[in-house]
Write a protein that binds this DNA or RNA. Structure first.
Lengths: 228, 228
DNA sequence: CAGTCGCGTGACGCACCCGTGACACTCCCG
DNA sequence: CGGGAGTGTCACGGGTGCGTCACGCGACTG
């Protein structure tokens, strides 16, 4: 099975160099020159990993990352971000836009290959995605962005899904509203903590008979019932 | 989910080196230069682990550790203490201030990463000292916000839980009402100290057969029975 | 043994917390 | 351009957690 790597950069030279190095390492590189194409290609080709330059014309890397994470078919693809200056690193990871790793230019292609392998290993081992969660009658298929209650499939919005996923990953442990805001919405988002309540309500509504699994701990936060 | 590590040190060089090594190991380091910032960042970011230098300007590492342990939102975060001299180790562990491990400078970053992984594994397994307290037939599961007496689970309110948690952490030592008011209710709350009595009463009621573990020390305060 | 201080107990009312419905706004897509 | 979906915010209301007070018993003191 060939491993497809999507490389997104606006400089042709960089694409050529990276492409050569990636082929040399046994991967199959595909390319995109701007954000819009990157998203289109990602949806069509379903690459195993994306190397994404932060500085792009039109739609920049952060935006691309956000859009990829939003779409069910691309949300589980690991992203390695390339930034020109170290100062930007903080933004990339700080904003928690979903980049799994990053590198600052200039960097050695060998180093990049190492990081790619690490991300691919993580993705395959599923140690991070824990791609399939099951609690009681609730089944969560993370890569497919699909949720089943018993045999009935239900459709969740992106926010609802992330909220449920995070709670399910930490089942049994109480999560404060602030904690959930950080992990679902990303911190330094000036969002009212009561918004969490509203989304919990919508989640419970859709979960129907399984709603009681989402417990409220008054004065503290919320908890997904069940042993670990 | 990225694993956030808070590194606290007053030397920029040390921060840079450690930051690089931690990133290399797949963690997401965040930083603080002094004790006050460390506490603020820990509360906001909820890191998965804290690497804390003992020698800090203003508020030193021991104090930071103590304060972190006092606050419910940070009390369960593992702490690895860095000390300049071996002689100080004894103080760190001897005083039982809640540090989970320590290293003496100079140390190899590789060794530090190993220790970090060990602490994280313990924390995830839920068997680290901070998160699960057990005294007699009372079991307190902090992450779950759940309490068991024998095999029977009881439900406590947020205030009752914090009160019990603090007493259990300092078992054997008498806590004055003012001390409890500070640590459970927060610093400047104009609250009648007799309120503590009422909550102790409710706690004893819910604890049932285990109520005698909460001892009254007339004229002084309250104490959670038991050595250690 | 009487007086006093400290603590347990029950009751009460306020304040806070959370569930809920409604609404405005922003993206998309037709 | 208009309509629909997704999402963040707000106001409202009910339930309850929680702080306070008064009373009385038990313990310690002189």
């Amino acid at each position: 099975m060939k491993t497809k790597i999507l490389v997104v950069d606006d400089e042709p030279d960089a694409l050529e160099v990276l492409g050569f190095k990636l082929r040399e390492a046994g991967f199959t590189p595909i390319f995109a020159r701007d954000g819009a194409r990157a998203i289109a290609v990602a949806r069509e080709e379903h690459p195993d990993l994306i190397v994404l330059d932060l500085m792009l014309p039109e739609v920049d890397g952060l935006e691309v990352c956000k859009i990829l994470r939003r779409d069910a078919s691309t949300s589980s693809i690991p992203v390695i971000m390339l930034t020109a200056r170290a100062a930007e690193m903080d933004r990339v990871l700080g904003l928690e836009l979903g980049a799994d790793d990053y590198m600052t230019k200039p960097f050695s292609p060998r180093e990049l290959v190492i990081r790619i392998r690490k991300q691919l290993a993580r993705a395959r081992a599923g140690d991070e995605p824990g791609s399939h969660l099951r609690v009681g009658e609730i089944q969560i298929d993370v890569p497919r962005h699909a949720v089943q209650v018993g045999t009935r499939g239900i459709t969740l919005t992106a926010t609802e899904f992330r909220l449920l996923e995070i709670l399910a990953r930490r089942r049994g442990r109480v999560q404060s509203r602030d904690r959930l805001l950080q992990d679902v919405w990303g911190y330094e988002n000036p969002i009212d903590s009561r918004t969490v309540d509203t989304h919990m309500r919508r989640l419970r509504e859709k979960l129907g008979t399984a709603a009681p699994l989402l417990e409220t701990v008054r004065g503290v936060g919320y908890r997904f019932a069940g042993e670990d």
